[in-house]
């Protein structure tokens, strides 16, 4: 397996967030919405790879995009890559979102950098009606609005402080939208607390939902058992692993930590 690919473009989305386009025909060819790649960021202090979900796939060009927010040593090192630099990437890994033809109306709910995997989902999902709800902390954090607009029948953006779009949490938007008209499935990705609330809202309406989880990973392929998350079994619980069993899980199955 060839791990060395090439950075094709870098596009700044806001002060600390950028989109990196990587040429990797095999990954672009086989990658599915919701799957992730494991990137060696380099730098003296980022020993482990970092997982990033596939944000946009261009199979004709053999490229894909990842969205990166600079948050620590790894993403800081990644921000120093330039166009045409070689980059060490493994993947695609994980299961991905379900793409059922029976789901005619879907809603995607994204919070912050959790919006990234939802874009490729919207691009590939066969549903005839797609509602997109995106939440950000403030106006400066809003990313990819136009791209989401192009792939949605309806897009609503909310900011926590009301500096752009609707004021408040994206979960409140979800609640009122589902009140207006139900959907067949909801796809959620964002901060843990937001996902927990969104799942509760879907549960109350008996609408199936899927969440894409994030956890600190070791190997990214299921060998080290590092990225554990708690899942419900019929009469018990167990640890599943985000890299191999996920990162996408049915919302009802996840036991969110308090």
């Amino acid at each position: 397996m060839n791990l060395i690919h090439r950075v094709r473009a870098i596009k700044q989305l806001n002060e600390d967030t950028f989109l990196m386009t990587i040429e990797a025909p095999e990954i672009a060819d086989t990658g599915k919405p919701g799957q992730f790649v494991n990137v060696k960021c380099g730098g003296p202090h980022a020993y482990l790879r970092r997982p990033f979900s596939l944000c946009r796939i261009d199979r004709e060009r053999g490229t894909f995009d990842i969205g990166v927010q600079i948050r620590g040593r790894g993403t800081e090192a990644l921000s120093r890559f330039c166009e045409n630099d070689p980059i060490d990437i493994m993947g695609p890994f994980g299961n991905g979102f379900s793409l059922n033809r029976e789901d005619r109306r879907i809603a995607v709910v994204g919070g912050g950098i959790g919006v990234f995997p939802l874009l490729q989902l919207l691009r590939e999902h066969p549903a005839s009606e797609k509602l997109t709800l995106l939440g950000f902390r403030n106006r400066n954090q809003v990313v990819l609005e136009e791209s989401f607009q192009n792939k949605s029948d309806e897009l609503v953006v909310a900011t926590d402080d009301g500096s752009y779009g609707a004021r408040g949490f994206v979960t409140s938007l979800l609640e009122s939208k589902l009140e207006e008209s139900p959907v067949d499935r909801v796809f959620i990705c964002g901060p843990a607390l937001m996902m927990k609330h969104a799942v509760e809202i879907c549960k109350a309406k008996s609408i199936p939902c899927e969440v894409s989880l994030e956890e600190r990973m070791g190997c990214g392929i299921g060998a080290c058992l590092g990225c554990a998350c708690k899942v419900r079994l019929s009469d018990d619980w167990d640890y599943a692993h985000v890299c191999k069993d996920g990162p996408v899980f049915s919302g009802e199955s996840i036991v969110f930590q308090e």
């Binding site: 020993y47 482990l48 956890e215 600190r216 990973m217 070791g218 590092g226 990225c227 930590q257």
Partner: peptide, 20 residues
């Protein structure tokens, strides 16, 4: 055995801590 609660991995300079 189910193992320990997450997070189970922490990166350190040139290494990792695990509590699987």
């Amino acid at each position: 055995r189910k193992g320990n609660p997450p997070p189970r991995i922490a990166e350190t300079p040139a290494g990792i801590l695990n509590s699987v």
